[in-house]
Design a protein around this nucleic acid. Structure first.
Length: 539
DNA sequence: ATAAGCACGC
DNA sequence: GACGTACGTGCTTATA
């Protein structure tokens, strides 16, 4: 026999007083999930939280964090697997509610026991890793904010998406026919293998095509965009790829994920996936909604406020990662540019080319921007040359000039690598660690990869620390105000709010303040804000 | 099922 | 001579 909802509710009600006792600590593995389930049964947990999964992420971010792995690693014990109860993932998988009580009780008791034992083991690990403050003041309080955002969800214009889908299908059919005509033969344009064979074996548009590591012809966007002049079919293939991508990943998929009860889309924000400390978003991923191309922007337009009394507000950090680089390195030239409120890429171009800012051309700014981004990622001359499609020598010159002007940034990069070599890890402004076991490897490729991580992880991770602090403070202040407006999305350097129109003027300065003051930097922090009847307009 | 290749975001 | 930009999610094709 299986328990029904009323029986489940009755059981939960028995435990309710415990969940409402704010002096008690609720220990769990992935507590955000439990928070959501209990909320579905009307229970708002008031306990302090202690999450074993999140704890493990802080002292071992690059490992897996599921409970079976943790139990085996730290308790030397293999628990009853969930698959033994409900079957393998797939269509035949049962719900936990279908499992008889006398079977589930052993699993449940063991689950609770293991979680408690893991917590006891992890307290010291958190202390040893120096992440106690980050854990208690950032990651644990963030759980509640994330749960709230997931629960709110975001409204989407399903009809608009469906109309766009029909239009995309027409365009795809047309481009498909044009490509087959240009090729003079039929093939599947969605197959990179077939595209490569058509371009390089059949049409032979160039002499020496690049190959992937498996020996197949490489036909990625970066390769094909450089071959657009070789044959008219190339641009059509890129066009086809864009259309099919937008249709299959977004336009046709998002409507299927609209919740029947709430009529909104509810993503899951993952707190323990990105090793640098960033969040990730899945089912659906709302952190990669298109914005770059005109057709992509049509999709962003479909994200709308919950009703006509609301408006979307987007608040995003301006150049946060470069500001963090400037702040950590203390580089006088880069700090000065930010202190004077300059456009950082124009200022960089002026420095690198040794000219006045008024003399900087679009192309110079574009190149300087590319160097600035390359710095954040630890890119070398080869990568910059490839990216900008310029000669290696010119790329090297750009980078040499860059470090001549921003000398302290070079020092910062060397310092991070040396720190990693000595300690085996690097850390963010809030002490979040990333272990780099390959930093002393004899294999140059492997070692270089670790060195790039040594440079990038503190930058990307500090930006993640910063927006997380802002999210907690914003969530708490809005909650205390008892208002209708809600924080609903985070996209790494951007927060999106579904704002009750009468509250807009009230909450704007609150959001701006908490974002600016999340972490003190040695340069100003700027936040751009916009509102609109859809996400595109708000951006 | 899993890997490869590709494309979307920051 | 090879390698060469950080972090993600998710689609389709191709192969096991």
């Amino acid at each position: 026999m299986s328990a029904n909802r009323d029986e489940a509710q009755a059981l939960i009600d028995l435990f309710k007083p415990l969940f409402l006792d704010s002096s008690k600590t609720l220990i769990g593995q992935n507590i955000k999930y439990d928070l959501q389930v209990l909320k579905n049964y009307g229970v708002e947990i008031k306990n302090k939280l202690w999450d074993t999964m999140v704890a493990h992420f802080l002292f071992m971010p690059e490992m897996r964090h599921n409970m079976n792995v943790l139990a085996e690693t730290y308790l030397d014990y293999s628990p009853i697997s969930i698959e033994e109860l409900i079957g393998k993932k797939g269509k035949d998988q049962l719900s936990m509610r279908d499992v008889p009580l006398d079977v589930i009780k052993d699993y449940a008791a063991e689950d609770a026991d293991i979680t408690l034992k893991l917590k006891q083991a992890f307290v010291a690990k958190i202390q040893e890793s120096g992440t106690e403050k980050l854990f208690h003041e950032v990651e644990l309080p963030l759980i509640e904010a994330l749960a709230g955002m997931e629960r709110e969800g975001i409204n989407v214009d399903v009809q608009g998406l469906n109309e766009f889908s029909a239009q995309l299908q027409e365009d795809i059919t047309k481009v498909d026919a044009e490509i087959q005509a240009l090729a003079g033969t039929k093939f599947n344009i969605s197959s990179p293998k077939q595209v490569g064979e058509i371009l390089f074996d059949y049409l032979k548009i160039i002499e020496k095509p690049k190959k992937t590591k498996t020996g197949q012809y490489a036909t990625g966007e970066d390769i094909l965009s450089k071959l657009e002049g070789k044959h008219p079919i190339v641009a059509k293939i890129l066009d086809y790829r864009e259309l099919v991508k937008l249709k299959s990943t977004y336009v046709d998929t998002l409507p299927l994920l609209v919740n029947e009860k709430t009529h909104r889309i509810h993503t899951t924000f993952n707190q323990v996936v990105a090793v640098t400390g960033r969040l990730s978003s899945d089912n659906p991923n709302l952190q990669n909604i298109p914005i770059r191309t005109e057709r992509g922007r049509q999709i962003r337009k479909a994200f709308i406020p919950r009703n006509e009394d609301y408006i979307l507000l987007s608040a995003d950090y301006s150049q946060i990662e470069l500001r963090i680089v400037a702040s950590i390195s203390g580089d006088p030239n880069m700090c000065e540019a930010f202190n004077l409120g300059k456009d950082i890429h124009t200022a960089t171009a002026a420095k690198v080319y040794g000219i006045e800012e008024s003399e900087v051309t679009k192309e110079m700014r574009y190149k300087a921007k590319s160097v600035n981004f390359g710095i954040i990622y630890g890119q070398g001359a080869f990568g910059l040359a490839d990216n900008l499609n310029i000669p290696r020598a010119e790329a090297k010159q750009l980078i040499d000039n860059y470090f001549a002007q921003y000398g302290s940034i070079k020092t910062y990069m060397d310092n991070e690598i040396n720190f990693a070599k000595e300690h085996g890890y690097v850390q963010t402004l809030m002490g979040r660690r990333r272990w780099l076991k390959d930093i002393n490897s004899n294999n140059a490729t492997v070692r270089s990869y670790a060195e790039r991580n040594a440079i990038n992880a503190p930058i990307q991770g500090s930006a993640a620390d910063m927006i997380k602090v802002a999210m907690i403070n914003i969530h708490n202040e809005l909650k205390g105000m008892n208002i209708k407006s809600r924080m609903i999305l985070q996209v790494h350097d951007e927060l999106v709010f579904d704002v009750y129109k009468p509250e807009l003027d009230l909450i704007k300065p609150i959001i701006e303040k908490h974002m600016k003051e999340a972490l003190p930097l040695n340069v100003p922090v700027e936040v751009g804000m916009g509102v609109g009847v859809n996400w595109l307009e708000a951006h």
